[in-house]
Simulated scan of single mutants.
Amino acid sequence: MTDSLHIVCPHCHTTNRVARSQLGSAPDCGSCHKPLFEAHSTALDEASFDKHISRNQIPVLVDFWAPWCGPCRQMAPGFEQAAKQLEPQIRVAKVDTEANQSLAARFQIRSIPTLALFVGGREVARQAGAMGVADIVRWTQANLPR
């Protein structure tokens, strides 16, 4: 296990090298100087999605959702609370499937909300349907590679 990790900035999408021991010490981006973790989800679009999935050396939990979806809006506050519990060990992100239809098609998102967990650039788990904060955290942790 290496002592530093690549972490993609949620603001400017620059890849940063962060010492593993410094993850919990509120590291800042070397480029834009904003916090790399703010205990809430990062909105991803088609341009930033692949960079976050492929370059982050921490798992990435993605909520595929849409603004018109009632269950998505119902789950949103719990997803933000889950981000507070999961970061900085896991990047928590959201993809608006209405605004990013080709991403939704590429990942064959058939119902929303759908959570997808990516590790090392690959999807390792998927769960459709709204969940509460405790279930989001538990599901995510249960699906991390050991």
Score class of each variant (00 low, 15 high):
Val95Leu: 12
Ala128Thr: 15
Lys34Phe: 12
Asp3Gln: 15
Leu103Trp: 05
Arg91Thr: 04
Thr2Met: 10
Cys12Ser: 10
Ala134Asn: 13
Val60Asp: 02
His40Cys: 09
His11Phe: 13
Cys9Asp: 06
Glu80Arg: 02
Gly121Asp: 03
Leu44Ile: 07
Ala83Phe: 08
Ser48Ala: 12
Ser111Ala: 15
Ile7Ala: 08
Ala104Phe: 15
Arg110Asn: 12
Ala43Asn: 09
Arg110Glu: 11
Ala125Val: 08
Ala99Tyr: 11
Ile112Ser: 04
Thr15Phe: 00
Phe37Cys: 01
His6Trp: 05
Arg138Gly: 08
Ser54Met: 06
Asn143Glu: 09
Leu36Val: 00
Thr15Gln: 06
Gln57Tyr: 08
Ser111Tyr: 14
Ala39Tyr: 11
Thr97Ser: 12
His33Asn: 09
Ser41Gln: 11
Arg122Val: 03
Cys69Phe: 11
Thr140Ala: 03
Phe118Lys: 00
Ala47Val: 02
Leu86Cys: 10
Arg138His: 13
Glu38Met: 00
Glu46Gln: 07
Arg17Glu: 14
Asp28Cys: 12
Thr2Cys: 06
Ala76Met: 13
His40Gln: 15
Ala82Glu: 07
Ala83His: 00
Val92Ile: 13
Ala82Ser: 12
His11Ala: 08
Lys51Tyr: 01
Met1Asp: 13
Val124Ala: 10
His6Tyr: 09
Ala128Gln: 15
Gly132Arg: 06
Gly70Tyr: 06
